[in-house]
Computed example of a mutant assay.
Amino acid sequence: MKKQVLAVAAALLLAGCGSGQIGDTGGGGTDPNNKNLALLTGMRGEPFYVSLECAAKAEAAAAGYQLNAQAPEKFEQAEQSQMLTGIIGTKPGAVIIAPADDKALAAPLQQAKNNGVKVVEVDTALEDRSIASASLSSSNYAGGKLAAETLSKLVGDRPGSVLALNTKAGTSTTDERAQGFEEEIAKHPNLRLLPTQYTENEPATAAQIVSATLAANPDLVGVFGTNLNTGEGAGTALDNAGRSGQVQLVGFDASPKQVEDLRNGRVQALIAQDPAGIGREGVKNAIAAIKGEPVQRETKTGTIAITRESMDAQQHYFYRSEC
């Protein structure tokens, strides 16, 4: 594996860069003394969200606030919307949320705002930028570009086709990662980008798609999984086909399973985020919004490429499976 891959990881985690806009500064009937916060992440048990939740709980407790954390069983807007309705009824000072759909969650979150509940987006965001006081996420477009740069270095000069696996259409984070990946891969003439496939965030579906792609495209040299579920599914398919290491796999996120796959050679590189940092800053922004203090409307954190060669030195980027 080439040493140059390590140099690709130039982006530093927690190097937050604002959009230059200051978000909501309070008002709207919010009680500045409300000490109750709600956290609604995208999916229960997913290591990215577990890491985010653990850090958010610790930050809230240190600040003297109560944090009620919930998550749907699957990354679906219907269950998340139902849970959000219940949360609004408890009248927290703020809801910190990873919207599962960038359009469908707009109406219930607007209702929350109308009822004096501050809205802070973490990881994913609504298309309507007028509802939330603040949004915090990784620079997902840049992360997608980093994945493409990393994959191209792993493949080298070999010609062949490349597949990107997205999750659900309308998921802001993975759509941005796929876009960054597609635009960067286009700069490498030896690589032919196949149409992006959607997995509905199911590892089994990702595995089926990769298996079918291998059969239809024997020149497949690379796969990019835009999140941990797509990466895990792709790794399973490549292993079952005896193509691990022959087809270079770059995953997004550093879940325990993805890290294990990196160590045993089923994955060649991971693009890691900083969910703990996003969770901590999400709570800080929520508290500031409740108090009517200025908050940065949009903050982006960096991503880093981890390879088998560098993983022991970069294990502090690995995600947690429990608090």
Rank of each mutant, 00 (worst) to 15 (best):
A58H: 03
A142K: 14
P294V: 12
A254C: 15
V5I: 15
A60N: 09
L262M: 08
G86D: 11
A305C: 04
G233E: 09
P92I: 07
V223M: 03
V117M: 10
N227R: 09
I278E: 11
A55M: 05
G245C: 06
S133V: 06
A62I: 01
G143Y: 09
V259P: 01
A207P: 06
D312Q: 13
A186V: 01
F252M: 11
G242T: 02
A186C: 04
K284I: 00
C17T: 12
D123F: 08
A147T: 03
G144S: 09
K145P: 01
P275C: 09
S310I: 02
G156V: 11
A125N: 13
I96W: 04
T30L: 02
G89H: 10
L14P: 00
E232K: 12
A269Y: 08
Q315Y: 06
E232I: 15
T299G: 04
G27S: 05
V119L: 09
I271V: 14
L136K: 09
L6T: 10
R320G: 00
T167E: 05
A212V: 01
A186H: 04
G45W: 10
K153S: 08
P294F: 11
D157C: 00
G45D: 04
P108T: 10
D175G: 02
L193D: 03
G222E: 04
L84R: 10
P189W: 06
N264W: 07
G225M: 08
G292V: 09
Q82W: 00
R158A: 15
A276E: 11
Q82L: 10
A125L: 07
S139F: 12
M1H: 12
A58W: 00
A7K: 12
A147E: 03
D175H: 02
L40D: 03
A11I: 00
T167G: 07
E232T: 14
L220P: 09
A125G: 02
A107R: 13
V283N: 02
S321P: 02
Q268E: 13
K91P: 01
A71N: 04
E322W: 02
I287S: 05
Q111K: 14
V8E: 10
L105V: 08
N36T: 14
R192K: 15
T213V: 14
V8A: 12
A204C: 03
S133Y: 07
E200H: 12
V8K: 08
R192D: 11
E183C: 05
P256Y: 09
K57R: 14
N190H: 11
R158W: 00
L13P: 14
L194E: 11
A215M: 13
Q296I: 10
A125R: 15
Q21H: 13
G231A: 15
R320N: 03
E298M: 12
N114M: 05
G27T: 06
P256M: 06
A272C: 07
K35D: 04
M43V: 14
Q296L: 14
A71V: 05
R177I: 07
G28Y: 03
V247P: 10
G245S: 10
A178M: 12
